[in-house]
C-alpha cells in the first residue's frame, strides 16, 4: 500500500488581503483514488483546488506530479502539467462560441497540436462516453446544465489527464440534473480515474470516496474514510456540519 502518490500538494497557503483563505493545506492522492473535500461555503475548497493547478497562485506551498515538482514560473512546464490535470468547474465554463464538439476538440488541436480529423474522432468518442452523441452540434446556450457539465467533463477527459479536479461539479444544477452528472463521475471512478472533488453531496461522498477531507476557514479540520468523517467524526465542527447537511439532504442510511 505504499505506492507513491500521483499528485501531492504541501502546505498550500493563500491570502486575499488580510484574510487567510487557505492555511497550510496539504493533500496527496494515489492512482485510482477519489478524495472528496467537504466544508461550508467559503471554507477554501475552491481555492484549494484552484491552487493545485495554479489557476490561483498560492502564496506558499509546493505541488508535485509523479514525483516532479511543478514550478509555476516555468510556463512550459506549467502548461504541460495543466494538460495532465483536468479541471471541472462549478459553472461549467464551456467556451460559449463553440459547439459541444468544438469545445472538446479545441484543446486537442490547439494545445496538443493533434490533427483535425484525429481530434474530431477523439472528441466524438469522449462525448459518446458521457452520453452526448446526439448533441455534438449544439452550442452551450442550447444545452441544459447537466449536459453542459458533461461536455466539460468530456473536454477535460479528451486531454487524457492523470488526475481530475472537480470543483463542486453539481452545485449549479437542479436536483434532477445532478444525478446524470454524478453517474458520469461514478463511471470515471469505476474506470480508475484519479480524482479530487469538492461537493456538498454527502450521500455521494459516502458511497464513492476513499477519503473525505473536511475543510473549514481554510484549515483542514479532519481527514478520514467516509464512514468515520460522516458518522463518527471526532471534531465538534465536523459533527455539526455533517448533521446539518444530513438535515438538508436526508440520511443515506
Amino acid at each position: 500500500m505504499s505506492k507513491p502518490p500521483v499528485l501531492r500538494a504541501e502546505n498550500i497557503t493563500k491570502r486575499y488581503g488580510k484574510k487567510v483563505v487557505l492555511n497550510n493545506a496539504s493533500l496527496s492522492i494515489c492512482e485510482r483514488e477519489l478524495k472528496i473535500l467537504i466544508g461550508p461555503s467559503g471554507s477554501g475548497k475552491s481555492t484549494f483546488l484552484q491552487c493545485i493547478n495554479f489557476l490561483v497562485t498560492p502564496d506558499r506551498g509546493r505541488v508535485w506530479l509523479d514525483g516532479r515538482e511543478i514550478l509555476r514560473t516555468h510556463k512550459r512546464d506549467l502548461n504541460a502539467y495543466r494538460q495532465k490535470v483536468g479541471m471541472i468547474f462549478q459553472d461549467f465554463n464551456l467556451f460559449d462560441h463553440l459547439t459541444a464538439l468544438a469545445n472538446v476538440e479545441i484543446g486537442l488541436t490547439r494545445v496538443r497540436k493533434m490533427g483535425k480529423e484525429e481530434a474530431c474522432e477523439k472528441a466524438m468518442q469522449e462525448l459518446d462516453k458521457v452520453g452526448l452523441r446526439d448533441h455534438i452540434a449544439k452550442y452551450p446556450a442550447q444545452l441544459s446544465g447537466g449536459q453542459k457539465q458533461r461536455v466539460s467533463i468530456a473536454r477535460a477527459l479528451a486531454m487524457d489527464p492523470e488526475v481530475m479536479l472537480l470543483d463542486e461539479p453539481t452545485s449549479a444544477l437542479d436536483p434532477e440534473l445532478i444525478t446524470e452528472v454524478l453517474a458520469v463521475i461514478k463511471d470515471l471512478r469505476a474506470n480508475g480515474m484519479t480524482m479530487i472533488m469538492s461537493t456538498h453531496q454527502l450521500n455521494f461522498a459516502s458511497e464513492v470516496a476513499d477519503e473525505i477531507i473536511f475543510l473549514e476557514d481554510g484549515i483542514i479540520v479532519e481527514v478520514g474514510p467516509p464512514d468515520k468523517i460522516l458518522y463518527e467524526p471526532e471534531c465538534e465542527r465536523t459533527i455539526q456540519f455533517c448533521s446539518k447537511m444530513r438535515e438538508l439532504y436526508g440520511n443515506s442510511r
Binding site: Q50, M87, F89, N93, G107
Partner: peptide, 12 residues
C-alpha cells in the same frame, strides 16, 4: 471562467 477553463486545459 472562460480564461480559467482555457488555462486549465494547458493553453498559453
Amino acid at each position: 471562467g472562460q480564461l480559467l477553463a482555457a488555462q486549465a486545459l494547458g493553453f498559453t
